[in-house]
Simulated scan of single mutants.
Amino acid sequence: MPETTQRPSLTERRKAATQQEIALAAAMLFAEHGPEATTAEDIARAAGISLRTFYRYFRTKEDAVAPLLSAGVRDWIEELAAAPAESGLTEALEQAAGRALTPAPGRPAEALDWVRGLLRVMADAPDLLAVWHRVHHASELALIPVLAPRTGADPLEARLAAAAANTAMRVALETWAASEAPAAEAAALAARCLRELTAGLKP
């Protein structure tokens, strides 16, 4: 019998939903007031939870945005995993990025705006920047098994492909966030970065 993916339990789904609500509240407060002026108490209040509940989910106020940042990465990896096997590496990466950065049910257009706000305040917030880099390190590791079938049996090639693709997406989002370009241009910029950074890999 084929393997089936076990659906998360109701408790796990509720926990994930609560984490996302807290993450959105944190992102909006950080973008509006700055990380220094925002406290964990402020985030808990905005999310409609107690401070004790906040700390049950997150160790620091900066950690609270990780679910929001991770959601976009997860969407991209899931789109990539679902890409047809006959698609070339670069083609699969570009198409998956385009779909992940395009609004869809469960992926509102506002999500990119919240990420833009966060990225703009990270330059002066080392702890927040550390969360961004931690999320991308995790995404690089998650990409390896997804890209391995498209890069052949060489583990080094899979690791290099994952590093290049992950860096391309990070640079694309950081560049887009620093500009005044509309959300629709984030996907085009990601495609360009992916083409240029994966040019030396197998097509």
Rank of each mutant, 00 (worst) to 15 (best):
E91Q: 12
Q95W: 12
V73L: 15
I77R: 07
G98C: 06
L69F: 02
A81G: 15
V65C: 06
A97T: 05
A97I: 04
E79P: 06
E86D: 11
S87C: 11
A71N: 09
T90G: 02
G98M: 13
A64F: 01
A47C: 04
T53P: 01
Q95S: 12
P84R: 02
L93E: 06
I49L: 08
D75C: 09
E94A: 08
G98T: 11
F54S: 00
V73G: 03
I77E: 07
F54R: 05
Y55I: 01
G72T: 14
T53Y: 05
S70D: 15
S87T: 09
G48L: 08
G98H: 11
A97L: 03
I49P: 11
E94F: 00
Y57H: 09
Y57D: 02
L68A: 10
A85I: 04
L68K: 10
Y55F: 12
R52Q: 07
E91W: 06
K61M: 04
E78Y: 07
A83T: 08
R52P: 00
L68Q: 14
R74E: 13
D63T: 12
E62V: 02
T53Q: 13
A97S: 11
E86N: 06
G88K: 05
L93K: 12
W76D: 08
A82L: 07
A82C: 06
S87H: 10
A83P: 13
R52M: 00
T90E: 05
E78P: 09
A92E: 09
L80E: 05
V65L: 05
S87M: 10
A82N: 02
P67S: 09
E94M: 04
R52S: 00
A96L: 10
A83C: 14
L69D: 01
L89V: 14
A83V: 13
G98E: 10
G72Q: 14
A81T: 13
V65M: 08
A82V: 05
L51H: 15
A82T: 14
